[in-house]
């Protein structure tokens, strides 16, 4: 479990994290989402005990990170931004160093070492210097470091940054498997990742919490939620007909590929009426799609709205 209460961090006049209160329970994968410079990394560094908060507090598994730092750090597996590691060491030396630092002794240490090497497929590179590894491999070594002591709480700062699609998939699977009984907090600016991984999303910008919801709830905030889109050449005449349907709020046509999107009135379901109408008109529609909503649009709306109000205040 991770809890923060009014967690605040200032650098001079700049407030990087502003009274952030969140609570992540076991079984949750919370995605901390925000534009660059929103305060994601600063918030994580405070929870990890690397930075001291200006005010407010953070607890990991009930241990205050300032008052019981060692207990909090023992409960936490942390992948810092950029997955830093000691370049002059080999992967084996580095992971053995972590084993010793985590106080894993004898048999237990070997077991965890082997398990993690297998989970992250590091067998082939154990003898290589970390300096010589690709970005993706280095990230995997960083992940191995974070999960080595099998922590109940996992905090990963941009875990898939710099990975290719296959590696991203592998890392997401790993997180998925680990998620079952653990508390996981990941930061990202990849919206696909949120949909793929997280069962809860917190959006922050300028250090402030702006939204706390499930990915589906966020998608429902999109104006695309429940919209129906299709491609149909020569459908100019049917637009008017579509617009006259009682459930329809509006219609847009993509100027590039001519794809038509029909927006519903709030709460209305329009897939069936639209389909019926198109069939009645005898229009050839190759494929028709019901939109779930666009996270990127919601994200932009939430985070840029904040900028506008902040600008108005300034």
């Amino acid at each position: 479990m991770i809890e923060t209460e009014q967690l605040t961090r200032r650098y001079g006049n700049l407030t990087a994290v502003d009274a952030l209160s969140i609570r992540v329970e076991p079984g949750q994968v919370l995605g901390l989402l925000g534009p660059n410079g929103a305060g994601k990394t600063t918030a994580m560094r405070m929870i990890a005990g690397f930075l001291v908060p200006t005010s407010g507090s953070a607890r990991v598994c009930g241990h205050d990170v300032l008052r019981e730092p060692l207990q909090a750090k023992r409960a936490l597996g942390y992948l810092p931004e950029g997955a830093p590691s000691y370049g002059e060491m080999t992967v084996r030396e580095f992971l053995q160093f972590i084993v010793r630092m985590r106080g894993l002794k004898g048999e237990a240490g070997y077991r965890r070492f082997d398990a993690v090497v297998q989970q992250l497929q590091l067998d082939d590179v154990l003898g290589l210097g970390i300096d010589t590894l690709s970005k993706g491999l280095r990230r995997r070594v960083g992940l191995a470091q974070a999960i080595l002591h099998d922590p109940p709480v996992l905090m990963l700062d941009e875990p898939t940054d710099g990975l290719d699609p296959n590696q991203k998939h592998a890392v997401r699977q790993l997180i998925d498997v680990m998620a079952r009984e653990r508390t996981i907090l990941i930061s990202t600016h990849l919206l696909e990742e949120v949909r793929a991984l997280c069962n809860r999303v917190v959006i922050i910008a300028r250090g402030k919490l702006l939204a706390d919801a499930t990915p589906a709830e966020l998608e429902a905030r999109s104006r695309y939620h429940g919209a129906v889109s299709f491609s149909a050449p020569g459908s100019g005449m049917s637009q008017e007909m579509l617009g006259r349907l009682p459930q329809v709020a509006g219609i847009e046509i993509d100027p590039l590929d001519g794809r038509i999107t029909v927006f519903p009135k709030p709460g209305a379901r329009i897939l069936e009426p639209v389909e019926t109408l198109l069939r009645e008109q005898g229009l050839e529609v190759s494929e028709i799609q019901l939109e779930r909503g666009r996270l990127d649009e919601v994200f932009r709306q939430i985070t840029s709205g904040d900028e506008a109000t902040a600008g108005a205040r300034a």
Partner: peptide, 14 residues
């Protein structure tokens, strides 16, 4: 400079 300070100081040691 290398960022490993963050790694070291978030491991359980004083």
């Amino acid at each position: 400079k290398g960022g490993t300070l963050e790694l070291l100081l978030t491991l359980p040691l004083t």
